[in-house]
């Protein structure tokens, strides 16, 4: 399982390195979204709103949806699905590998977006750095959930429109927990509840993915 996971993660990251979709499409989308958030807040609030952590996670949520579509789209290109299916890879390993690759991609994107948040939304640098561990865990949980939901909608009619309907409710608690913990890092306050939610979600989705990803592959 671990060997397959590393093989698949390496393959996904290699594809990303070759195609540069993350660099030329996803990152610009994320940064643009951040700018739009500032515009939506209005000139009086842009740059000093306490909504900055929530806006960061909202942007990352949409970025994650793009990346999930990309991750599954790569597997379902014409001919790819069948030629890979006959390799008979351990589905638990495939799930872990795709989750790992998506997590790395989200961390890279998140690092740029959080830097953008410091710059444009004026989140305090020290507080933002203190929030990085919680951001990493939240994005990991989103990657695990996203890999499962991506597989759930892959290969059926209208996956691009169905994916957000299924995934966003699952992301909502992670968005809240992430926002709360980011805000706590910036302004102080209790953190442990939000860590529990993020860790429970991360472990839960990993466990369900390891057990049930194969069921989705066979569908």
């Amino acid at each position: 399982m671990i060997r397959t996971a590393l093989l698949v993660a390496r393959k996904d990251l290699l594809i990303e390195a070759r195609s540069r979709v993350l660099l030329w499409q996803v990152l610009p989308f994320g940064l643009l979204s951040l700018l739009l958030c500032g515009l939506a807040l209005g000139p009086a609030q842009a740059g000093k709103s306490s909504a900055a952590p929530g806006l960061f996670y909202l942007v990352m949520l949409f970025v994650t949806l793009l990346m999930i579509n990309r991750s599954q789209g790569v597997e379902h290109a014409a001919g790819t699905r069948e030629s890979v299916a006959v390799l008979g890879l351990d589905p638990a390993g495939v799930f872990l590998g795709k989750t790992l690759a998506l997590t790395v991609e989200l961390w890279l994107t998140g690092a740029v977006i959080v830097g953008g948040a410091v710059l444009t939304l004026h989140t305090a640098f020290a507080g933002t750095v203190a929030a990085l561990p919680s951001i990493a865990v939240a994005l990991g949980a989103m990657a695990a959930a996203g890999t499962m939901y991506g597989a759930l909608t892959a290969g059926i009619d209208g996956p691009a429109t169905l994916l957000p309907v299924l995934t966003l409710p699952a992301f909502a608690p992670l968005l809240v927990a992430g926002e709360r913990s980011f805000s706590s890092a910036l302004h102080g306050g209790a953190l442990w509840e939000w860590w529990v939610i993020m860790l429970v979600a991360l472990v839960g989705y990993l466990a369900i993915g390891v057990l049930l990803y194969g069921v989705l592959e066979d569908s």
């Binding site: 393959k11 070759r18 790819t80």
Partner: peptide, 14 residues
Amino acid sequence: VGWLGHEGSFYQDL
């Protein structure tokens, strides 16, 4: 089994 589909094989970007 060995499979050869008519739509091509494997990953396009690799």
